[in-house]
Design a protein around this nucleic acid. Structure first.
Length: 279
DNA sequence: CTACGTACCTGCCAGC
DNA sequence: TGCTGGCAGGTACGTA
């Protein structure tokens, strides 16, 4: 599921519901996720206040005084909030019980059919290398941050021989653009996704940067995209799928020129684009 | 360093 | 009505 907008929507809604909460207990299931669940750290967190809920790239950061629980939703992960008495359902893997103000207990449940998601513990002593703790490959800048713009993209893309689409997906320059939003932003900026990243002009990069910011913002406002599994913590589905111009629309008419949208494969992943509009 | 293939998992849908 | 194969939001790791 989750690209940056879905993780951001999750973070925003958790912030609203878990303000002032303290972790009471944390249980994890028998089936492993991408990484073993950090049981020892989670046990140690019992009684600790949840200080802040952050996000870096597609990682959700639950911050406690001793450090961070970094949650990644993988392909099919979703978090829901529920009461302590609500039963487990198939593919629930982690349940964190929080004591909220007024002594209301709220459970945060991590649900993930494919189990590509992960929980990792990052001790506060590694705070200055948070990015390296989160990911093995270098994490680019935040697309909704202050340093991201066309000039930045242009500079970062010099000499890159990979296709623009793969370059965006790698997250080396800018994070958070996954397979759905990559197709959308390439279409909106009118760039052929097969072009080498290093061949983009400054003007192209400005169009591309503007499209990335616009699409991600709109997707966040719409509650993200739900293909199958994603829901926000209150169980609601993302509505941005209704706004997709090309993703998942092979054979349908291009909204700009009316030609048929095509599906191509790059690095074993689908890209949707219009041969008429994207150069 | 880059680039590429493959692996990790379950579910769904189209086609036979 | 099965069954089978292809495909799905992402990352990590091995090999050149």
């Amino acid at each position: 599921m989750p690209e940056l907008p879905e993780v951001e929507v999750t973070a925003q809604r958790l912030r609203a519901s878990l303000a002032g909460a303290t972790l009471a207990e944390c249980r994890s299931g028998a089936k492993r996720l991408r990484h073993p669940f950090p049981k020892a750290a989670a046990t140690r967190l019992a009684g600790q206040p949840l200080i802040r809920i952050g996000r870096r790239a597609k990682y959700l950061l639950l911050e406690f005084p001793p450090g961070w629980l970094a949650v990644h939703l993988g392909m099919s992960g979703a978090i829901r909030l529920c009461g302590p008495d609500e039963p487990e359902i198939l593919h629930d893997h982690v349940r964190m019980r929080f004591a909220c103000p007024e002594k209301i207990m709220v459970d945060l449940v991590y649900h993930d059919p494919r189990r590509f998601g992960s929980f990792r513990w990052i001790d506060r002593r590694y705070a200055d290398s948070l990015d390296q703790q989160l990911s093995n490959s270098p994490l680019g800048v935040e697309p909704l941050g202050t340093v991201f713009n066309g000039a930045y993209l242009h500079k970062a893309s010099r000499g890159k021989k990979v296709s623009v689409k793969q370059w965006l997906l790698s997250g080396h320059a800018v994070v958070g653009v996954g397979n759905i939003y990559a197709s959308e932003v390439m279409f909106i900026s009118g760039i052929d996704p097969r072009r080498k990243a290093g061949s983009l002009s400054l003007a192209h990069c400005e169009l591309l940067a503007d499209a990335i910011v616009k699409v991600l913002r709109q997707a966040i406002d719409a509650g993200g995209t739900t293909l199958q599994d994603f829901t926000a913590p209150d169980g609601s589905e993302g509505r941005y799928g209704q706004s997709h111009q090309v993703y998942g629309r092979e054979g349908l008419a291009c909204p700009r020129c009316g030609k048929s949208i095509v599906r191509i494969v790059q690095q074993q992943r689908s890209t949707f684009c219009c041969r008429g509009c994207q150069r």
